[in-house]
Amino acid sequence: MWKLGKITAKTHIGDYGQIVDSFVLLLKDTCCEEVKMTNGTDFILEKNYNDLTGKVNAKGVTEISICETEEGTEVELILDPFVYRYDFKVTGTIAGTEVSFTRADVDKVWIKDMDQFVAYEENGVHYRMYEPECMGKRPLVLFLHGGGECGEDNELQLTGTLGALRLVERWSDMYIMAPQAPSGNLGMQEMFEVMKKRGNPFSADMGITPFSLKGERGWNRDYVAKVTDIIRKMISDGKVDENRVYLIGMSMGGGGVLQTISVAPDLFAAAVPICPSMNGESYANLLHLPKVPVWITSAYMDHQHSRHAFILNACNKLWQEGRTDVKFTLYTQEELAKYGIGTTEGLTSQELDAENHNSWILALHNENGILDWMISHQKNKEKC
């Protein structure tokens, strides 16, 4: 007879965020000869969704691997990968004994390539940094996450969505900095309730500045100033090329991009705000955008229906002022569908809006050459 020990989830960060590839179950007081399996038909998975909205189930366990370790027998359930954020359930039989576990029962989560980032805490800023193995000054890309990844665990900003880990795959010779915005002691749902009391949380009401107050959840001016101070120190230490500092962020982080440019306009060579939140603060920041090239992008429609009208209004003002360094692109329904966005059958209009909001997937895959455009810019290029 055996007893179940630790359960480990092996995951990676994919287009839809954190994806689980397998579960490793440690069985104590047994040996591999007692555990004989050839496939995963003895296991049933529930809520193992592989789409953005949580409607389509993955295939389940596709293979089983068994090995003996010093701690006991490890049974690895190899999966048709699915999105890890849902409250899934796994039920099955091992060596005649039933086993059942949920997301809450997982003891350890292993995340592929997380060890590439070093965790830091400096002057109240929690951040992770990828540091290239290169001599001399290197470019730096600052990545700002969205509203769901705020906190103080210094991890969620890498795992909540596709983001900084993807940038390392593309630019292994650059610094990739991923700070975590403060939570303001509020969870995402709690903050959402605060925003609802102020009005429609998805509106772009110009009198509302939901993330601007010092200490409140998100990319407030005080916090992003501390983030830029860290970069300035890296420049003064000879680590970072002062002419090649870039900025990219999505959703709340897209608004954070505009906020950060406003706070430190001299620091950045170019920036990409993806589906940036539009409110009284971010709209004003865009209307009065400093001389930093930006390429704004979003889906043709998402859950903040007035987002594009305010972006276009601000861009029109900038274009009339001769700002040829400002670009604005809306991804079409067909372009989004290439990445599985909006293709699940039976989506309500609200669910479709929520899926479309994931337009950062396209930007981080360099659709229309947007990432190439960003890093093609250098400050003071004539002096380089």
Rank of each mutant, 00 (worst) to 15 (best):
S100H: 00
N313S: 15
A119C: 11
I261A: 03
M1F: 13
I248D: 02
V257P: 02
G148K: 03
N154I: 05
L371I: 08
E190R: 04
K3N: 15
T38N: 13
M278I: 01
K89H: 10
D222H: 15
D302Q: 09
V61T: 02
N316I: 15
N220S: 05
G40D: 01
R221Y: 15
L258H: 00
H145V: 04
V272N: 00
M1R: 11
T260K: 01
N366M: 04
Q189R: 11
R307W: 03
W171K: 14
A181S: 11
Y331M: 03
S183F: 09
G346K: 09
K214H: 12
L336S: 02
K10A: 14
G215I: 09
E149G: 06
K226S: 09
F310T: 10
L156G: 09
N313T: 15
E76C: 07
V326F: 01
V118S: 14
T344F: 08
F268Q: 01
Q350W: 14
N220C: 05
K36L: 14
E169Y: 11
V24C: 11
W171L: 13
F23H: 00
R244A: 11
N279K: 05
I311P: 00
S22D: 05
L267A: 06
H305M: 14
D229H: 12
E169W: 10
T324Y: 14
G199N: 01
E335P: 02
N358Y: 15
G340W: 07
I208Y: 09
K28F: 06
S359A: 08
G146R: 06
M191W: 15
Y120T: 06
R323H: 08
V106W: 00
V99E: 01
E131R: 15
A299L: 00
S306R: 12
L158R: 00
K28Q: 12
C384K: 14
I296R: 00
W219Q: 03
F328E: 07
P132I: 11
K137G: 08
G322F: 03
R166P: 01
L156F: 12
W219M: 03
S183Q: 07
D325Y: 07
E122V: 11
